[in-house]
């Protein structure tokens, strides 16, 4: 068993795009989960796939890491064909799946040790790397703890460490912080930022807009298996929402008519008006002076505004 990823000899992928998906299609018994989407992940950058539940995020990245076969289209990772060179591709990527798949029969350290063997990493090198990684995720004090004793945040960090055991060129993360408390979430973000600094390419799915804004260089928002928009987070906000958002709780009829007359784009949710505007100082002053003293709030536009505007507000269950 030859080690495909010796420590010293690794060559980083130097092409421009580490992932190239063209007309990627996935059907389950006639249901189209991913509908011929095309996107490219730039080497060394963080690329996000956003979308509501059931939009096709997980299905898409499962095809990228060779777990799900494609129903159509073409997919290249490291310029290699996933359906033919899957083993070479998989030996160079690290994957954090959505569900906790840590091995509860093993300790923290053994989880990394055993996982390294799946990549044919020699034992000695694996142990050294495992120690480094536990240090990196601040779990070096829990080496011999059974994973079942770890908190949710610790487990997620360990999954992250496990996905780095093979020095991957591409890290694939499926909702890396879902269900974590704010402290743990920020810790994961810091680790991911540190990894990006090291030049590792990241492909991530999330439905936390804050996460996407903070981490992603580029992103796509998908829904019903289709790409709605693609771009840099700040560009998308600028294009689709503007700079500012004014939220008005319990608007009166007069205020409604006033907003209508101003020509600003807005959404009427009944009990709440949301106005998108470029320069809002004057408008906000007029609203608070003439219509309502309370329940009116002006804030910076966020990616969440873009997301809700594009994917709608109805529940996805």
């Amino acid at each position: 068993m030859k080690s495909e990823r010796g420590s010293g000899t690794q060559t980083h992928f130097s092409g421009q795009h580490i992932v190239k998906a063209e007309n990627l299609l996935k059907k389950f018994d006639g249901f189209v989960a991913v509908n011929r989407i095309s996107f490219q992940v730039e080497t060394g950058k963080c690329f996000g796939i956003l979308g509501p539940n059931g939009a096709g995020k997980t299905t898409t990245i499962r095809m990228v890491y060779g777990f799900s076969p494609m129903s159509g289209g073409s997919l290249k990772v490291f310029d290699l064909d996933i359906s033919r060179d899957w083993r070479r591709i998989k030996s160079r990527i690290g994957v954090c799946q959505q569900e906790n798949s840590l091995d509860p029969d093993l300790t923290v350290f053994q989880n990394l040790e055993v996982f390294a063997r799946y990549f044919n990493i020699p034992n000695k090198e694996a142990r050294k790397k495992a120690k480094e990684l536990l240090d990196f995720i601040a779990l070096d004090h829990r080496l011999n703890a059974p994973v079942t004793e770890l908190s949710g945040g610790m487990m997620r960090r360990l999954v992250l460490a496990r996905s780095l055991i093979n020095h991957p060129d591409l890290l694939i993360l499926d909702e890396p912080t879902t269900g974590l408390d704010p402290q743990s979430r920020h810790q994961i973000w810091e680790k991911l930022e540190a990894l990006r600094e090291q030049g590792i390419s990241i492909l991530l799915t999330t439905h936390y807009m804050e996460e996407a804004s903070r981490l992603c260089d580029r992103l796509i928002i998908i829904d019903h298996g289709l790409i709605l928009v693609e771009g840099k987070p700040e560009e998308l906000i600028q294009q689709h929402v503007g700079k500012h958002v004014i939220e008005i709780a319990g608007p009166t009829q007069e205020l409604r008519s006033f907003i209508q007359s101003t020509q600003f784009p807005y959404e009427d949710l009944g009990h709440r008006l949301i106005v998108y505007c470029e320069k809002s100082g004057d408008l906000y002053q007029r609203i608070t002076r003439d219509f309502c003293k309370e329940g009116c709030l002006m804030r910076m536009a966020t990616l969440e505004d873009v997301f809700l505007k594009l994917t709608g507000r109805e529940l996805r269950e």
Partner: peptide, 14 residues
Amino acid sequence: YQKTFDAMLATPLS
């Protein structure tokens, strides 16, 4: 329950 196979299938194992 343990999703051990899922984890393995994200590595070079078939």
